[in-house]
């Protein structure tokens, strides 16, 4: 594909995200919105191009978390922008830019996939997992931006609920893939236990509304703490994978 191995496409996408953010905070929301759409289109082309990095098409590099995460946060901002153009969707551009700057410095090559990683379960696991992470980050961002719950228009709760739905989907598809590839639905490894820890953490969060002592402010702090834990778990995993040999960059 024409965008394969062309990292300048990635940089253009990131630049467009950054410009969109600047326009948004300069109150040119309409312009910011259309620049975000352009950025997402360019970034999508780069992601698709990653499919051919190994010289043969593979879905694995497209859904590699450090590269998919900015796209997911950008898509959440887009959807929120579509639902309410005058709303606070632009706050999420901060997350999009931060995640895409990380992608900019991340290793661009692919980890050679083993036979048990060449399956449709790979996108079925990674897409909802990364979307879940993205929604948790967005929830945390909204919780902070709302002044820890003071601004009631900024609904971080719904973002986290949808994050929990996506994350639960990834737990199911991940379990199926794990069984087919390794013979267990759950493995006692760092990856699986950390993933289960995130799930139980947000399961605890969704029970908060039944605890009268927990105010909206308390929930917002929980959302921030959750986002930071997901950030630590997710990004320590991405950094760990930098040590694996790669092909194509």
């Amino acid at each position: 594909m024409i965008t394969t191995g062309r990292h300048e496409i990635l940089y253009i996408g990131i630049l467009l995200f950054a410009v969109s953010m600047v326009f948004y905070f300069c109150r040119a929301r309409k312009t910011a919105f259309y620049i975000l759409i352009s950025g997402l289109l360019v970034y999508t082309l780069y992601l698709l191009g990653r499919g051919w990095v190994g010289g043969v098409f593979l879905i694995n590099p497209i859904v590699e978390a450090p590269f998919l995460l900015p796209w997911c946060i950008g898509m959440i901002a887009l959807v929120k922008g579509i639902l309410n153009r005058e709303g606070d969707w632009g706050i999420l551009l901060i997350g999009t830019v931060m995640a895409s700057v990380f992608a900019m410095f991340y290793a661009k090559g692919i980890i050679p996939p083993t036979p048990n990683k060449l399956t449709v379960w790979v996108p079925l696991f990674f897409v909802p997992e990364v979307m879940g992470h993205a929604l948790f980050f967005c929830g945390a961002l909204y919780a902070v931006a709302s002044g820890f719950g003071k601004n009631k228009d900024m609904d971080f709760h719904n973002l986290i609920i949808w994050g929990f739905v996506f994350y639960s989907i990834s737990q199911v598809t991940g379990a199926v893939w794990c069984y087919l590839g390794w013979g267990n639905t759950f493995r006692w490894s760092t990856r699986h236990m950390a993933s289960a820890a995130i799930w139980t953490l947000y399961a605890a969060y969704i029970h908060l509304r039944f605890l009268p002592g927990f105010t909206r402010r308390g929930k917002a702090w929980f959302a921030l703490a959750g986002g930071l834990i997901v950030l630590y778990i997710g990004f320590s995993g991405y950094l760990h994978e930098l040590r694996f040999p790669r092909i194509g960059g």
Binding site: W188, A197, A204, H207
Partner: peptide, 16 residues
């Protein structure tokens, strides 16, 4: 649930 989260997270650090 918070207790299970803490145990799983601790386990993930040891497994690492």
């Amino acid at each position: 649930l918070i207790g299970a989260t803490a145990s799983l997270f601790t386990g993930s650090l040891y497994a690492n």
